[in-house]
């Protein structure tokens, strides 16, 4: 009955008030810009299109496929909507979805809604748009560019949003950096594969049925430089800095270290859970980067696999 749950909707009580307020302000500003840009582009058609598409994305998030052992693949949809509508309209659609989830279904809190909007509606769309644009510039063939860019963009949107989510929890003092960041990153490196596969399926369906709707490569190349730069900066900062941050002790441990308690604390960690995600790797930065590389490799293998099956079916 309830929408598919991703481990991304932060409830109230988990974020500190300064973090919540700063992200509320950022979200309000960006959504305000998105409103102005979209109403200029679409005119009075804006409201029915956004509203109904948001309802469809909400319903689409409920459709899942079983992976194995009770786990299932879900959709967030930020990349998918960005491909279909372009970044500004996508921000509005995702804003509506995330808001309804918080207001009606309590999936995510009310005070933390600002940061959930920031993560899923803004970072998700910015990152997707930046990657879509870059991949479409690199790959010349239109069809290959469309499919590979949607796979890469949707995987990265999930991965980067989860890093953002983890950083916010760390900044709020809710989770220690050296556990939250690698854990969120490795879980979502896998969840991102589900997102990438569903997005690929949806885009290939739309490509077959209504090719005219897919205009991301051609439409508004120069007008959205701000999002392109913003998305790239967010991606690079979170992808590079969060593994580095996760290898440093968090505030609490820093205090513990100062007072000579670290050896005790570490003993306790090693007794119950190892202080790193991948057994055998002592450095969390390395572990996170490796999780990222594994995820990227899985996506790459998937692209090749899909390309192969397409070849087979066409020949």
């Amino acid at each position: 009955m309830l929408p598919g749950k991703l481990f991304m909707h932060i409830p109230d009580g988990f974020l500190s008030i300064p973090v919540s307020i700063v992200l509320w302000v950022v979200s309000i500003v960006v959504i305000g810009i998105a409103l102005r840009k979209t109403s200029k582009q679409l005119g009075e058609k804006e409201i029915p299109l956004m509203g109904i598409l948001a309802a469809a994305i909400f319903a689409g998030q409920m459709l899942n496929f079983s992976v194995t052992g009770g786990t299932s693949g879900h959709l967030l949809g930020a990349a998918l909507v960005t491909i279909l509508l372009g970044p500004w309209a996508a921000i509005l659609v995702m804003t509506s979805v995330v808001s309804i989830q918080a207001l009606v279904f309590q999936d995510g809190g009310l005070i933390s809604l600002g940061s959930n909007l920031f993560n899923m509606a803004i970072v998700g769309v910015f990152v997707s748009y930046a990657i879509l644009t870059v991949v479409n510039k690199i790959i010349k063939s239109e069809k290959t560019a469309l499919f590979s860019s949607s796979v890469i963009a949707s995987w990265f949107s999930i991965f980067i949003v989860s890093l953002g989510c983890a950083v916010e929890l760390v900044l709020s003092g809710t989770s220690p950096a050296n556990i939250a960041i690698p854990a969120m990153a490795s879980i979502h490196a896998l969840i991102g594969v589900g997102e990438a596969l569903i997005t690929l399926g949806a885009i290939s369906f739309v490509y077959t049925a209504r090719k005219d709707l897919l205009k991301i490569g051609s439409a508004s190349k120069s007008t959205n430089k701000g999002i392109l730069i913003g998305g790239s900066v967010i991606t690079i900062i979170l992808a590079i800095l969060s593994p580095m941050a996760s290898s440093h002790p968090d505030g609490l441990e820093w205090v513990a270290e100062k007072q000579g308690f670290l050896s005790v604390a570490q003993d306790s960690i090693y007794n119950l859970i190892p202080d790193y995600v991948m057994p055998g790797l002592t450095n969390e930065a390395v572990a996170t980067i490796i999780a990222g590389i594994i995820g990227a490799a899985v996506v790459f293998v998937l692209i090749i696999g899909v390309a192969q099956t397409r070849k087979k079916t066409s020949s």
Partner: peptide, 20 residues
Amino acid sequence: IGWRAGVTGKMVGNLLLRSL
């Protein structure tokens, strides 16, 4: 899994087209 995900993706695509 790829087939299952593909089918789900097409369902989502279908839903989006209908909504458009």
